[in-house]
Deep mutational scan, measured.
Amino acid sequence: MKHYEVEILDAKTREKLCFLDKVEPHATIAEIKNLFTKTHPQWYPARQSLRLDPKGKSLKDEDVLQKLPVGTTATLYFRDLGAQISWVTVFLTEYAGPLFIYLLFYFRVPFIYGHKYDFTSSRHTVVHLACICHSFHYIKRLLETLFVHRFSHGTMPLRNIFKNCTYYWGFAAWMAYYINHPLYTPPTYGAQQVKLALAIFVICQLGNFSIHMALRDLRPAGSKTRKIPYPTKNPFTWLFLLVSCPNYTYEVGSWIGFAIMTQCLPVALFSLVGFTQMTIWAKGKHRSYLKEFRDYPPLRMPIIPFLL
Score class of each variant (00 low, 15 high):
278 M>I: 06
27 A>C: 01
166 T>P: 07
209 F>R: 15
103 L>T: 13
250 Y>I: 15
295 D>C: 14
251 E>G: 02
134 H>M: 02
192 Q>M: 14
43 W>S: 06
157 P>A: 12
90 V>T: 15
271 S>Y: 03
246 P>Y: 01
92 L>S: 15
77 Y>S: 04
56 G>R: 02
301 M>I: 06
71 G>R: 14
8 I>L: 04
23 V>I: 14
208 N>S: 10
113 Y>S: 06
194 V>L: 10
38 K>E: 04
150 R>T: 04
223 S>I: 15
263 Q>H: 08
174 W>Y: 09
51 R>T: 15
103 L>K: 03
15 E>S: 00
98 P>V: 12
159 R>H: 11
233 K>M: 12
46 A>M: 04
204 C>Y: 03
81 L>M: 03
219 R>P: 02
40 H>A: 06
244 S>A: 10
164 N>D: 06
302 P>Y: 00
292 E>R: 11
54 P>C: 15
288 S>T: 08
134 H>D: 00
120 T>E: 02
113 Y>R: 14
7 E>A: 10
96 A>T: 10
210 S>L: 03
68 L>P: 11
11 A>N: 04
262 T>N: 12
145 T>Y: 08
186 P>G: 02
19 F>W: 06
163 K>Q: 13
258 F>N: 14
246 P>F: 01
195 K>D: 01
247 N>T: 10
296 Y>R: 03
218 L>M: 03
134 H>N: 01
216 R>G: 07
91 F>A: 03
182 P>H: 00
233 K>N: 06
216 R>P: 04
68 L>R: 10
304 I>A: 07
175 M>T: 10
90 V>D: 14
20 L>Q: 02
211 I>T: 10
134 H>Q: 05
245 C>H: 15
19 F>I: 12
111 F>A: 05
49 S>D: 05
295 D>E: 06
224 K>N: 11
126 V>T: 12
102 Y>C: 02
66 Q>V: 14
34 N>Q: 13
19 F>S: 10
204 C>S: 12
75 T>K: 04
25 P>L: 07
250 Y>Q: 15
66 Q>T: 04
167 Y>F: 08
21 D>H: 02
12 K>E: 11
69 P>H: 04
209 F>H: 03
47 R>P: 12
44 Y>F: 05
130 A>D: 02
33 K>D: 13
303 I>V: 09
9 L>F: 03
194 V>D: 00
231 P>Q: 14
283 K>Y: 14
48 Q>K: 05
114 G>N: 13
81 L>F: 06
253 G>V: 07
28 T>G: 00
125 T>E: 12
195 K>S: 15
266 P>I: 09
295 D>I: 06
212 H>L: 03
166 T>N: 05
279 T>F: 03
64 V>F: 09
246 P>L: 03
94 E>Y: 01
146 L>N: 01
81 L>I: 14
4 Y>N: 08
150 R>V: 00
206 L>T: 06
261 M>S: 02
102 Y>R: 01
274 G>D: 03
27 A>R: 01
153 H>Q: 13
214 A>R: 00
5 E>W: 00
66 Q>L: 04
302 P>T: 05
229 P>Q: 03
301 M>G: 08
245 C>W: 05
144 E>D: 06
4 Y>E: 02
247 N>D: 05
78 F>L: 10
186 P>F: 14
210 S>W: 02
303 I>G: 00
191 A>L: 12
144 E>Y: 02
247 N>C: 14
248 Y>D: 04
12 K>M: 06
90 V>A: 11
165 C>Y: 11
94 E>F: 00
